[in-house]
């Protein structure tokens, strides 16, 4: 498999008032292979959304580089990036705000192709609507006439209009009810199989991620703490944080586990050493002094912990 998108030592920092810095993403390196689905998971403020946007050039990184098919796309001007845009698309969580309420669905769907001067718009829309499971009667209607699930289907269709090779989906199902969520999860999986498009799923829901992704990268306070095959990682997590996250998912088939103590620390003042040591049930003296680097523990499996569980 060839590497489609690669990030090297990517950081994104925001300057705040009073001279403080919010380190949303720190020193992240990752690769997405052609046709592969990578999930970025973590709690709010872990930097997963910022990372997802930075990866496809929505906002320049503070340092580090992003390569698409081996060519550097970070640091390019908006003009220069425009050539790459059709190949990378984004699906947002809130499908109600991504559509202009005063334009018809057909209009909105056609727009990306018009902008890039493509022809055969009508056929393309027809094919895509069929693929996302909607009839072409929706074209003359307005966004408010659709349910959340239908709007998310349209949203996905819009993102696929230009035939991208990479799709970044930020919490594509978290605003939906369980029964609708299952439909969208299935749809994304089908589309991935039939179109061979690579995906980056940003989500906080481990069960959804397990269903949709091939690989998983768990983030905590702007850094990747564990990465590997999704089934393997969730079967036997190596990082204590991954395990805590997994245990905290409320499931009908198991009792409430003892929760992790405390809150996620502020990304403005992250703890010294391992960022997780303030909440880690297995913390050792070394954890508060020395930050663990990501290291390989098995084939295709990395973890940033001094005392991994594997």
């Amino acid at each position: 498999m060839t590497i489609l998108l690669e990030a090297k030592n990517l950081s994104k920092h925001y300057r705040l008032a009073r001279g403080e810095t919010l380190r949303a993403v720190s020193d992240v390196s990752l690769a997405v292979h052609r046709g592969e689905a990578l999930a970025l998971v973590g709690e709010s403020g872990c930097g997963k959304s910022t990372l997802g946007r930075t990866l496809i050039g929505l906002g320049a990184p503070s340092s580090g580089e992003v390569f698409f098919e081996g060519e550097r796309i970070s640091g390019l001007s908006d003009r220069a990036l425009r050539r790459w845009r059709p190949r990378m698309q984004m699906v947002f969580q809130d499908s109600s705000s991504t559509f202009n309420p005063r334009r018809t669905i057909g209009d909105t769907l056609a727009e990306p192709m018009r902008i890039h001067g493509r022809t055969g718009i009508a056929e393309r829309i027809g094919t895509l609507l069929e693929q996302v499971g909607l009839s072409s009667s929706v074209l003359s209607r307005y966004p408010h006439e659709f349910s959340g699930g239908q709007r998310q289907r349209l949203n996905i269709a819009r993102a696929l209009m230009l035939g991208p090779e990479l799709l970044v989906a930020d919490e594509p199902t978290s605003a939906l009810d369980v029964s609708v969520q299952a439909q969208i999860v299935n749809l994304l999986r089908e589309l991935r199989n039939s179109l061979g498009v690579a995906c980056v799923f940003i989500s906080h829901d481990l069960a959804v991620v397990r269903q949709m992704a091939d690989r998983i990268a768990v983030m905590y306070l702007g850094r990747i703490v564990e990465e590997g095959d999704v089934l393997a990682v969730l079967e036997a997590p190596a990082h204590p944080y991954t395990r805590a996250l997994l245990n905290a998912v409320p499931r009908p088939d198991r009792p409430l586990p003892p929760p992790l103590k405390g809150d996620v620390p502020s990304p403005i003042h992250p703890p010294q050493g391992c960022a997780f040591h303030t909440r880690c049930p297995l913390t050792q003296p070394r954890c508060s002094q020395e930050r663990p680097e990501l290291h390989r523990i098995a084939e295709g499996r990395t973890v940033a912990c001094h005392y991994p569980l594997l």
């Binding site: 369980v178 029964s179 969520q181 299952a182 999860v185 299935n186 999986r189 089908e190 481990l206 069960a207 959804v208 397990r210 269903q211 089934l231 969730l234 079967e235 997994l246 998912v249 499931r251 009908p252």
Partner: peptide
């Protein structure tokens, strides 16, 4: 409709 968190991964969720 809840995706499973262990065991085999179904091709499609009910």
């Amino acid at each position: 409709a809840i995706p499973p968190l262990d065991g085999p991964r179904p091709e499609a969720l009910p």
